[in-house]
């Protein structure tokens, strides 16, 4: 496959090229999905370094298992299965007991964060609101791992229930119940921040 054709090429064309030994085609696939993959891995592992390792390892696995990909299926559904399993494994091995440090700056009465930080509308606002950011990190970490995966795939990645079911090898009904449970738990855990 020619270099200039790769950016717009369908996933399947890139997969065929990669299977034929074209590493640049595989690289293009990776560039396409790395950010989405990182967001999901970060949500599941809760740690940026772990997430980066997970994404790297998932792409390496994908490279070696590409011959098992069934044409006609979605690459990202297939890839996310590797990614989510990898992320859950990593979480089990290294992050379960990791505590999220509390930023005590805004716990004091005298210092209040500005309105935009209190009720964040941008990632930058949220990054400044360490209390909410840490509370989110803890609330996500407190979810059972497959519930965490479901809500991240749905809310962050925008996957349909059917796609999530394929990624996690479960029924659409299970996806729905896990998602509803996870949303309700997060809603409850973050209540004080929403109500101000």
């Amino acid at each position: 496959m020619k270099e200039k054709e790769k950016p717009g090429a369908p996933d399947e064309a890139l997969i065929r090229a990669a299977l034929g030994g074209d590493e640049e085609a595989f690289r293009e696939l990776m560039e396409r999905y790395k950010n989405r993959a990182y967001h999901v891995a970060l949500g599941i592992t809760g740690d940026p370094d772990d997430a980066l390792d997970v994404v790297q390892e998932a792409f390496v696995k994908a490279y070696y298992n590409l011959k098992e990909f069934r044409f006609g299926a979605n690459f990202y559904t297939w890839f996310y299965r590797l990614l989510v399993n990898q992320a859950i494994d990593r979480w089990r091995k290294s992050s379960r007991s990791r505590m999220v440090p509390l930023d005590e700056k805004w716990l004091s009465e005298e210092v209040s964060p500005p309105e935009s930080v209190m009720y964040p509308r941008t990632p930058e606002n949220l990054a400044q609101n360490r209390q909410l950011s840490d509370a989110l990190t803890r609330a996500i970490a407190d979810l059972p791992e497959y519930h965490r995966a479901v809500i991240l795939l749905r809310e962050v990645d925008g996957m349909a229930y059917e796609e999530i079911a394929k990624v996690l090898h479960c029924s659409v009904g299970t996806v729905m119940s896990r998602l509803h449970y996870a949303r309700a738990k997060l809603k409850e855990a973050l209540k004080e921040f929403r109500e101000g």
């Binding site: 967001h39 949500g43 964040p120 941008t122 809500i151």
Partner: peptide, 8 residues
């Protein structure tokens, strides 16, 4: 918040 959290 989940989307902002992952983006941040």
């Amino acid at each position: 918040m989940l989307r902002l959290w992952t983006a941040s």
